[in-house]
């Protein structure tokens, strides 16, 4: 971000050539996404058990796996369908900051809920 950002056309073209993604890649991504959908649907019928992390804190594996698959699908869509893999750094940064702020919202809010049960000092 610190380098001079001129608007002379020459600079711009060097910065990023518009990349055309081949339809074959799109097709491959489509297949992956459909397979992942089938996988996540199937997984929900299997009890994956749970992990007692600490007293009062239990982690169920089913939602973890479901969310992991959903995240993978999201990454595929973002990188290829939305061309982020071939986009300038600024776009990547924008996507990252969106996810980061979302995690801050979720994380900091849950930090309150999960520690309420710990009681007073």
């Amino acid at each position: 971000m610190t380098e001079p950002h001129g608007t002379t056309p020459l600079n711009e073209q060097q910065e990023h050539e518009h990349h055309v993604v081949s339809p074959l890649i799109y097709l491959a991504i489509l297949v992956c996404l459909l397979l992942a959908t089938a996988l996540t649907c199937g997984m929900s019928y299997i009890d994956l058990g749970e992990w007692h992390v600490a007293p009062g804190l239990t982690l169920f594996w089913n939602p973890v796996v479901a969310l992991a698959i959903a995240c993978t699908k999201m990454v595929l869509v973002v990188l290829f369908f939305m061309h982020v893999k071939y986009s300038p750094r600024l776009t990547k940064l924008t996507v990252a900051s969106g996810l980061f702020m979302f995690l801050v919202l979720v994380g900091m809010t849950l930090a309150d809920y999960f520690t309420r049960a710990w009681g007073r000092w």
């Binding site: 479901a66 999201m74 369908f81």
Partner: peptide, 17 residues
């Protein structure tokens, strides 16, 4: 589409076993 990718497991697949 991505929003739906998350809504699907969160709303439909909470626990089916």
């Amino acid at each position: 589409d991505i929003i739906w990718i998350f809504l699907y497991p969160l709303l439909y697949l909470i626990s089916r076993y």
